[in-house]
């Protein structure tokens, strides 16, 4: 097995509702889905975001399109219109999640 950034096997987009952020994460190939399912757990995502998410993380699975939706609460420093952060609307949170390390088989050309 080798360690790679999630970005090698997935892509995604994030956005806001109030102080909640969601990250839609999509496997780049169907065979990558189970790696994400096993390793990119809600608990690990919560830990990854650290102080950026002061609430909870829920993961929803969409196996038919090889995708996941992570919902992070209390994640924008109060919400888009009042946050002091640079990314007030969570536009780059999916990109931040792409840094997470995952283990994949050595023979995957990723």
């Amino acid at each position: 097995m080798k360690e790679v950034a999630l970005a090698r096997i997935a892509h995604g987009r994030s956005g806001d509702k109030g102080d909640t952020v969601n990250c839609g994460i999509i496997a780049r190939k169907p065979e990558y889905y189970s790696v994400i399912e096993e390793q990119v757990t809600a608990a690990r995502v919560r830990e990854h975001f650290g102080i950026f998410c002061r609430g909870t993380v829920i993961r929803y699975d969409l196996p038919k399109i090889h995708a996941f939706n992570f919902v992070l609460t209390h994640a924008l420093g109060g919400g888009g219109t009042v946050s002091l952060r640079i990314d007030t609307q969570g536009k780059t949170y999916a990109a931040a999640l792409m840094r997470m390390k995952v283990l994949v088989p050595d023979d995957w050309g990723v």
């Binding site: 892509h11 969601n22 839609g24 999509i26 929803y60 399109i65 939706n69």
Partner: peptide
Amino acid sequence: TPAVLKEQLLYEIGDPA
């Protein structure tokens, strides 16, 4: 493409059910 459209499908949603 499906990849492009999936990003928008999941944009700003909560529970997909």
